[in-house]
């Protein structure tokens, strides 16, 4: 069984997402809505990380630590300059999408195993990542014209 690897992957990516939201909040304190919403969304992810822990422990033997390729390259450092906010929101979108994809894949296996707790967990993560993505896209779309056309 490889399911432990995916559980581990979802868990670690969600932890990365907490860090990423906090990082972007801190970097864009001059945009109050970005600062506050990123903190809020980080708190959602943090809660999921904690709720996920018993399941992670239960499947621990099957886990192996494949490095998270995506989060290692994205948002290493938050950016500066006219494009910064848009690019950072874009990176957050990709990291959140990674969580969502991992979770969708994991849920397939969970359904196969009839693991009701894991399935419920996956559904909750999917629900929250959908809301997170929705905000990120709304905010990035708002910022895009002014950033790409007007900013120096």
């Amino acid at each position: 069984m490889h399911i432990g690897q995916y559980i581990d992957l979802v868990h670690r990516t969600e932890i990365d997402l907490v860090k990423a939201f906090k990082k972007v909040a801190k970097a864009h304190g001059d945009e109050p809505d970005v600062y506050q919403t990123c903190q809020l969304l980080a708190s959602w992810s943090q809660k999921l990380v904690e709720e996920f822990e018993p399941i992670v422990k239960r499947y621990k033997e099957e886990s192996d630590k494949e490095p998270d390729r995506l989060t290692q390259t994205l948002l290493k450092d938050t950016r500066k300059g006219g494009l910064a906010l848009l690019r950072d929101l874009h990176d957050l979108y990709l990291i959140t999408t990674e969580v969502k994809v991992c979770c969708t894949i994991l849920k397939q296996a969970s359904d196969g195993l009839r693991d009701k707790d894991l399935t419920a967990m996956c559904e909750e993560i999917e629900r929250q990542t959908t809301r997170q993505l929705s905000w990120l896209l709304t905010r990035a779309k708002q910022a895009a014209p002014q950033t790409l056309i007007v900013a120096k």
Partner: peptide, 9 residues
């Protein structure tokens, strides 16, 4: 909108 984040439907 999402009442918590303002994300547009």
């Amino acid at each position: 909108y999402d009442l918590d984040t303002g994300a547009a439907v």
